[in-house]
Amino acid sequence: MDSIVNPKDLEKKQIFLILVSAANMRQRNIDLIKEISAIEYHMVVITTNFPYSVLTKLYSDNGIDPKKVSFIDTVTRNSMGNTENIPRIVRYVNNPANLTDMGIAVTEALKENAGEKVCILYDSVSTMLIYHSSLNISKFIHFVTNKLRLMDISGVFLAAEKGLDPMFVSQLTTFVDQVIDSG
């Protein structure tokens, strides 16, 4: 199977917006982690839908080395209460509405993996629309992409391909290097 992102572009620390059909969102997440971790990247996954424990199982089932993935989990703490962060594995954010804490968690996770080949995966821009206006999401993604560029790190933003306002998509495209429609 062809890779979704070109490894050479990853080496150039490019940032990608990957548009996926809603039904394929989880599978594309797994495909990307598998593909990018296989070329010795450490993946930092920001999850807004599934808890990290479930994603870990899904990754393991798909032959992904769990050591190559750490998480910023915005789902679990909301249900399970005050769960403790596990260094290099998971950082919890109270809920997906808290962009400030999410921003801090991203900064800390990137520092934690400094010196490694790191790629961040944001799953997903679409879920964030439940909690934030497109304007606030744009600002947050601008903040994250700036941080990635300053730290010379590549990143992938997942979004459902249909249903996004064209103005919003065109705004997002200005923050990334490539938009890939992976179907």
């Binding site: 039904a23 969102m25 997903s124 629309l129 439940i130 206006s133 497109s134 996004l164």
Partner: peptide, 21 residues
């Protein structure tokens, strides 16, 4: 209206897909 349509229809589909998963 465009913003709200995006923030209503799209997330409902996300919830539907999540529950199915």
């Amino acid at each position: 209206i465009s913003e709200m349509a995006m923030r209503l229809k799209h997330p409902v589909e996300i919830i539907r897909d999540n529950i199915q998963e």
